[in-house]
Amino acid sequence: MSANTDRHESAVARYFEAWNASEPEELAKAVAAAWTIDGAYTDPLSDVGGHEQITAVIAAAHEQFPGFAFRLVGSVDGHHDTARFSWELVSEAGGTPSGGGSAPVAGFDVITLGADGRIRSVLGFLDRVPAGA
């Protein structure tokens, strides 16, 4: 495993820590650890920048899908300062994401990293979204 691969996987791990943080203070800290101060997040439903707005998008996802967690699907693929990975939103059982539950939302993201290894930008793509979401 190359140092670059480690860098990509570490950034993605921090990304999922942010998306799965449930308490406001924990979420704010996780977003700050994952994104650069001027980091951005863009998907078909959102286009935001900065920690405060990214935190608000994540909090809104928790409100819309209570009891669900984001999980990596497959492996992280990356080169230079860019990585891509697939994910799904799964129901939680006993505090951990279950592998057997439904996944109402799934997609893949492409991230660009800053020099410090934190995310500068996310381009998200939604492969599966429930009707009315």
Results as ranks from 00 to 15, higher is better:
1 M>P: 04
4 N>C: 05
5 T>S: 05
6 D>P: 00
6 D>N: 11
7 R>N: 09
7 R>A: 12
8 H>N: 10
9 E>N: 06
10 S>T: 12
11 A>M: 04
11 A>Y: 05
14 R>H: 11
16 F>P: 04
16 F>Q: 02
17 E>T: 15
17 E>I: 11
20 N>F: 07
21 A>D: 03
22 S>P: 00
22 S>K: 10
23 E>V: 02
24 P>E: 13
24 P>A: 14
27 L>G: 04
28 A>V: 07
30 A>Y: 07
31 V>D: 06
31 V>L: 03
31 V>S: 09
31 V>R: 05
33 A>M: 00
33 A>L: 08
34 A>P: 03
34 A>N: 02
35 W>V: 07
38 D>V: 10
40 A>H: 06
40 A>F: 02
41 Y>F: 15
42 T>Y: 01
42 T>F: 03
43 D>F: 03
43 D>K: 04
45 L>Q: 14
46 S>E: 08
48 V>M: 09
49 G>N: 13
49 G>K: 11
50 G>P: 04
51 H>L: 03
54 I>T: 01
54 I>W: 06
55 T>A: 13
56 A>W: 00
57 V>Q: 04
57 V>G: 08
58 I>P: 05
59 A>L: 09
59 A>T: 13
60 A>L: 08
61 A>N: 13
62 H>D: 13
63 E>M: 07
63 E>L: 10
63 E>I: 01
63 E>W: 00
64 Q>W: 03
65 F>Y: 08
65 F>S: 01
66 P>G: 08
66 P>D: 06
67 G>L: 07
69 A>Y: 04
69 A>M: 09
70 F>T: 02
70 F>Q: 01
71 R>W: 01
71 R>T: 11
72 L>Q: 10
72 L>A: 06
73 V>R: 05
74 G>S: 08
74 G>P: 03
75 S>H: 13
76 V>Q: 11
79 H>A: 13
79 H>W: 07
82 T>K: 14
83 A>D: 12
83 A>T: 13
85 F>I: 08
85 F>V: 11
86 S>A: 15
87 W>H: 06
88 E>R: 15
89 L>P: 05
91 S>M: 14
92 E>M: 12
92 E>R: 08
93 A>P: 00
93 A>C: 06
94 G>S: 10
95 G>L: 06
96 T>D: 08
97 P>D: 12
98 S>F: 08
98 S>H: 08
98 S>Y: 02
99 G>F: 06
99 G>S: 15
99 G>V: 08
101 G>N: 14
102 S>C: 06
102 S>V: 11
103 A>N: 05
103 A>I: 00
105 V>W: 07
106 A>C: 06
107 G>C: 08
107 G>S: 10
107 G>D: 10
107 G>F: 10
108 F>I: 02
109 D>T: 06
110 V>L: 14
111 I>F: 02
111 I>N: 04
114 G>S: 11
115 A>I: 07
115 A>Y: 01
115 A>F: 03
115 A>W: 00
115 A>D: 14
115 A>L: 03
116 D>I: 09
117 G>W: 07
117 G>Q: 06
118 R>F: 03
119 I>C: 02
120 R>N: 11
121 S>R: 12
121 S>D: 14
123 L>Q: 15
123 L>N: 11
123 L>T: 14
124 G>R: 03
126 L>W: 05
127 D>S: 14
127 D>I: 00
128 R>H: 12
128 R>S: 12
129 V>G: 01
129 V>E: 02
130 P>K: 13
132 G>H: 10
133 A>M: 15
